[in-house]
Simulated scan of single mutants.
Amino acid sequence: MPIPPYVAHLRTMVGHDLLWLPGCTAVVLRERGDGCSGPEVLLVRRSDNGEWTPVGGIVDPGEDPHVAAVREVLEETCVVAEVERLVWVSAEAEVRYPNGDRAQYLDHTFRCRWVSGEPRPGEDEATEVGWFGMDDLPPMQQRFLDRIARALEGPAGVRLGR
């Protein structure tokens, strides 16, 4: 995964110390086209660890989190999506990267709808991209399953915290 230039610049000043960074997760949904009921969710297989996840990324300085979510979907999957609503805000656990960098993310999870485009890996952040029915999700971390479940709930308020 490429490091955003501003994070690389911060690293020149703080080394491997903990960085607090805004992040976003886009749970992109579309109605199934195969006659089955229920939506499909857009997932990516990450190139850094091989895990399946919803689309996610770091919010750039001055960028609104919902704008970052749409940008990340387009960059990583070549799909155009539109944010429907914010569904969850949470402070994630600290991450330690193989190079020793430490980061912690304030994640903004958005329910998004597919607008156009057929998924394919965009940049080098994903090796595979695809639509999955809720009954056919690949193995993934519980926190991502929870975000998908939250996005599927009715228009309740935003969930705060883990």
Rank of each mutant, 00 (worst) to 15 (best):
D34S: 10
L86R: 15
L18E: 01
C24A: 13
R71C: 08
L106R: 14
S47Q: 00
D146V: 07
V44G: 00
A8E: 04
V27W: 02
C24I: 01
G117F: 02
D34Y: 10
R120S: 11
D34H: 04
A26Y: 00
E82S: 12
A149P: 09
W20C: 05
R111T: 09
S47K: 02
T53C: 12
G100S: 11
L42P: 00
V55Q: 05
D60M: 08
T12W: 00
D48L: 03
R71G: 06
G117N: 07
A68N: 08
G33A: 04
T77H: 00
L106V: 14
L160W: 02
P139N: 04
E31M: 10
A8I: 01
E51H: 10
E84H: 05
P119W: 02
Y105S: 06
H9C: 01
V80M: 04
P65N: 09
E82I: 02
I3C: 09
G50N: 09
R162G: 12
L74E: 12
D135W: 01
Y105D: 01
E92S: 11
P22K: 13
E84P: 05
A26S: 14
V7Q: 14
P5I: 00
T53H: 13
R85P: 12
R120A: 15
R143I: 14
A149V: 04
L43D: 09
G35E: 11
G56F: 03
A156R: 15
A26N: 06
E82Y: 00
L160V: 15
E84I: 03
R30S: 02
R159F: 07
E92F: 14
R147A: 14
V95S: 09
L43H: 04
P39G: 04
W52T: 03
P22F: 00
S116F: 03
L19M: 11
L137E: 12
M1G: 08
D64V: 03
E153H: 07
D64F: 06
G100L: 11
G23W: 14
G62W: 00
R143V: 15
L42I: 02
P98Q: 06
E153Q: 15
I3T: 15
H108Y: 15
I148V: 07
W114C: 07
D17K: 15
N99R: 14
G50A: 07
A68F: 03
V95R: 15
Y105K: 06
V28F: 10
L160Y: 13
E118A: 08
R46H: 12
S116P: 06
L18P: 03
M134Y: 05
P2F: 11
V115E: 06
A91P: 08
G117R: 01
C24F: 01
P138Q: 11
P22G: 06
A126L: 05
R159T: 13
L137P: 07
V59I: 09
E123G: 13
E76G: 01
N99A: 05
G38Q: 13
P4N: 04
V28A: 08
W20K: 11
T109G: 02
E94K: 15
V41M: 02
Q104T: 04
W20D: 08
E76N: 06
